[in-house]
Amino acid sequence: MSNWVYITLIVLVVYVTISVLLYLLQDFIMFKPEKLPVDFQFHYENQEIEEYNVETRDGATINGLRFKSQDPKGVVFYLKGNSKSIKGWGKFAVDFTRHGYDVIMVDYRGFGKSTGRRTQKAIKRDLQVIYNRIKENVKEQYIILYGRSLGSGFATKLASMNNPRMLILDAPYYSLSKVAKKYIPFMPLSLLIKFPMPTYKWMRYVNCPVHIIHGTDDKLIPYKTSVKLSKIKPSLTRLYTVIGGGHKNLNTFESYHKMLAEIISSKPKAVNLEGSSIHVKHSS
């Protein structure tokens, strides 16, 4: 056997081995869940909460919390990132309850007290079940979908299939396949990745106002991805920029809280463009 054939076989074996490992281990790479015992008691200072469990049709249990406000204006369905559990994520509910909104948070399968085999299809189905439960008590015109990082894709998918008041995306990705390709460009990710999460495809079918918040110094999901997403439905989308914001620290910026307050507290207003410069060309 000639050397070049031998080298080609070695490269092929290594490539196939890496592909198989990537397929089998991606769940452990992508998700960083925190498990909680079934008897764990949630507690948050100055927050009134209600815990609930929802049984799915395939026998899984989805655990969640409702953070209550006095005389709520509506409900924020908060879809968290890929790590920890709602035990820690619950501290962000104050950013909405202080504005008079109830907040619903759930743990994805395998996170916290939630059980079940984790797949993209199963999680999408679980979240629709929760959304339907919310609709039983709250009209959709009072439901806000908020997706943070990993949750931004799921929130967009929900918005594309329902009619919430608005969709807020916090540090969203264009698609997880494209994020992964940034780190391993030589792998056939279209065949290997189990959670492609094509946010950009789902965005095309969203018909409610979309508000995107992203930091300029986000090293994990670059700011430019939000710029690309904002161009998909430009008439419905507004992009909010947190100067100097990273991927995990937007809540530490005063500008973020000002943006959030503006988004959830204001109502859409029609703009009268008569007499404006909208049709004036600069060269003229």
Rank of each mutant, 00 (worst) to 15 (best):
F154E: 05
S190W: 14
P185K: 10
S152D: 02
Y174N: 00
Y183F: 14
L191T: 02
G147P: 06
L189E: 01
P164W: 11
A155H: 03
R148M: 13
P185D: 04
V179I: 15
L189F: 10
G147H: 10
Y200T: 01
A159K: 06
Y174A: 01
M187D: 03
K157F: 15
N162L: 11
V179Q: 08
A159F: 13
F186L: 09
K181H: 13
L169R: 02
F154R: 04
N163Q: 14
L189A: 01
T199D: 02
A155W: 09
R165N: 10
K194N: 12
P172A: 07
P185Y: 14
L191C: 06
R165P: 03
L191Q: 08
L167G: 05
G151H: 10
S160G: 06
Y183S: 09
L191H: 12
K157C: 11
Y174D: 01
L158Q: 03
R148Q: 14
Y200Q: 10
L176I: 09
L176F: 13
V179N: 08
K157V: 08
N162P: 07
Y174R: 02
I184F: 12
G151Q: 07
P198T: 03
F195P: 03
S177E: 15
K178R: 13
L192D: 04
R165W: 12
K182P: 00
G151F: 12
S149I: 07
N163C: 07
M161R: 13
M197N: 07
L169M: 15
Y183M: 03
A171R: 11
L169F: 03
P172C: 01
P172F: 06
K181C: 03
L189H: 05
